[in-house]
């Protein structure tokens, strides 16, 4: 074989070897930061499940969950004593989405096993959690890097989240609604 051909093969091999490494890195990258795609899939494929707040559908479904109907009819209820039943995202990439508070505990963070996945550089993997204690929802910050803000102040010890109080994590803000 000619010198030139050998040189091309030699350089080509190194190039292909490195391409393989970058292929793996790109797969890892999409695993780590590809959450956005997932969210789009979620909202596109399951629009009925992740519903936007106060859509007319919820009202017309006459036998639909009472709490839901109530929430939809009084979207800005100032009554702080009612029990919150859902979490509404008011700002951020997933603005408008709701998560029903049908469990004792809702975990929030970037990790895929969170109940509320927040895809945001300012959110930690396991950022915070909401815990229900006697009809109150408490927010607990799980030692997140950038903190959790309840009504503008950083959450230290677990604090009670009253309905309609904005909670901010990174670029996402949500409120609890009755």
């Amino acid at each position: 074989m000619s010198e030139l051909a050998l040189w091309i093969v030699r350089t080509g091999f190194l190039a292909v070897l490195w391409i393989f490494i970058f292929a793996i890195i790109s797969v890892i990258r999409s695993d780590l930061f590809g959450q956005k795609v997932v969210n789009k899939v979620a909202s596109a494929k399951a629009p009925k499940v992740v519903s936007a707040p106060s859509t007319p559908n919820t009202l017309t479904g006459a036998i639909g969950g009472l709490a839901t109907a109530a929430a939809a009819s009084t979207p800005t209820a100032a009554d702080a004593n009612v029990v919150a039943t859902k979490l509404v995202i008011t700002e951020g990439d997933r603005k408008g989405h709701t998560v029903r508070l049908d469990r004792r505990e809702i975990t929030i963070g970037r990790s895929e096993d969170s109940d509320l996945i927040i895809d945001d550089e300012y959110a930690s993997t396991h950022h915070a959690k909401l815990v229900q204690v006697n009809n109150d929802w408490l927010i607990q910050d799980l030692n997140s890097t950038n903190g959790t803000f309840l009504g503008g102040s950083r959450v230290g010890t677990p604090a009670v989240v009253k309905p309609n109080t904005p909670v901010r994590i990174g670029k996402t803000t949500f409120e609890l609604k009755a």
Partner: peptide, 28 residues
């Protein structure tokens, strides 16, 4: 008709299962 629920998870099942093995096949 309403089915509000914590539902972010559904997409995970749909996405994860075949994708991993297909990536593996390509890399292999």
């Amino acid at each position: 008709m309403s089915n509000l629920t914590s539902s972010i998870n559904i997409a995970k099942i749909v996405r994860v299962v075949p994708r991993l093995r297909n990536i593996e096949a390509l890399l292999l």
